[in-house]
Design a protein around this nucleic acid. Structure first.
Lengths: 206, 206
DNA sequence: GAATGGTTTAACCATATGGTTAATATAACA
DNA sequence: TGTTATATTAACCATATGGTTAAACCATTC
């Protein structure tokens, strides 16, 4: 019985993730989530008392996954060069493997930044393995030692994150404008990593 | 009377732009648009026969503005260095001046890429002053001449566009993670331009 | 000043949608 | 086997929402 209940809950979460990713919060339909999960709509409200609550659960799940993965990076003996290699590598793979996550987070960043920022802050404060402040201090020291050219850690990170993530949102746009369609997504993202790492190391390493 | 009609139409368009940007297509309410425009809801349907049509009008308007501005760039005698300076400069200013535009386009890129790509393609094909294919050919030639390090024009453009646009979506995220709040948006985006231009020129120019 | 044509409104309508209820099925356990 | 707690469903409900209608308003023209 516990099994059945678990499978229902999981089915709901999986279906909800897809639906929210595909249509955004306002566009998502509880009915559609139920159908996708192969259950009755009333079940949704049995397991999750409201649309809002279901959404927050998903959001939390998604963000946790991301931060857990990233925390693995920062523990290493970090050099700027290593960081600029490993971060895009990890981030681009992560986004490519979980396209739904990117859409959900991006949507919330655009339309509900306060909420998602609160969720992030909550997750970070609960994690013992990853605290961002030391990372930003480290970046500052890298510049003081003359290892990197960008003095402001915010812009340093922004450059890395931009190059890593944006293609997942902007790819269709660049394709539409250029008229060039990338042949295979897998190849595209592999090439993306090398291009990003090159630009970063050449562009920000002193 | 023509004045009054024009002002109603314009009021609707302005209100719709704000509402769609704030809540996305599905979350936007025709009622709310009417209220924001200071008119009756029925007026919306008098001027724009449906929500979908109103949205498409906005989308078209927004994209046209963008492409018109960008077309001004490409006509110049273009060198890679010049391009890497002027493009981020223009793009970041444009996005900072029209935050609604960014949100609308980003939303559609995430949830409805086919539609917005079709709109883009339509606008480009109608413009005589900007055709992207020659630009992409030019980029290819820059690499053949040994002026830039990235061989693939798609990734070359992707790097430039990513660095220019992403901060408008990701700023709250980086702020939340770092715990650092940027003091003034104006200063932030000015610094953003210099940081981006530095990375690009150092990172992609040979 | 009445006819004309675009503009504006209040009052409606049909339907979609988040959410509820009361009853049933099912497994576990005493 | 009867009791209990959880899981599941069909049928509802209230409200929100995109869209409509018919009448009024107003400026212009004849």
């Amino acid at each position: 019985m516990a099994e059945k209940s678990e499978s229902s809950r999981d089915a709901i979460l999986a279906a909800a993730r897809r639906e929210f990713a595909a249509r955004g919060y306002a566009g998502a339909r509880m009915e559609a989530i139920a159908r996708r999960a192969g259950i009755n709509k009333a079940m949704l409200f049995y397991y999750f008392s409201s649309k809002e609550k279901l959404y927050q659960t998903i959001l939390h799940e998604v963000m946790s996954e991301f931060f857990t993965q990233i925390s693995g990076l920062v523990t290493t003996e970090l050099t700027p060069a290593l960081f600029m290699e490993k971060f895009p590598e990890l981030y681009i793979r992560l986004c490519a493997d979980h396209p739904d996550f990117v859409r959900i987070v991006a949507f919330d960043l655009i339309h509900n930044p306060d909420n998602i920022c609160a969720v992030m802050a909550g997750i970070i404060s609960q994690m013992t393995s990853f605290q961002p402040h030391p990372l930003f201090e480290l970046i500052k020291r890298w510049h003081e030692k003359g290892l990197i050219s960008e003095a402001d850690p915010i812009h340093f990170m922004m450059n890395i994150v931009s190059l890593s993530i944006f293609s997942f949102i902007g790819k269709p746009m660049v394709e539409a404008i250029s008229g060039i369609r990338v042949a295979s997504d897998k190849d595209f993202y592999r090439k993306r990593v090398t291009s990003v790492v090159n630009v970063l190391k050449q562009g920000m390493l002193k």
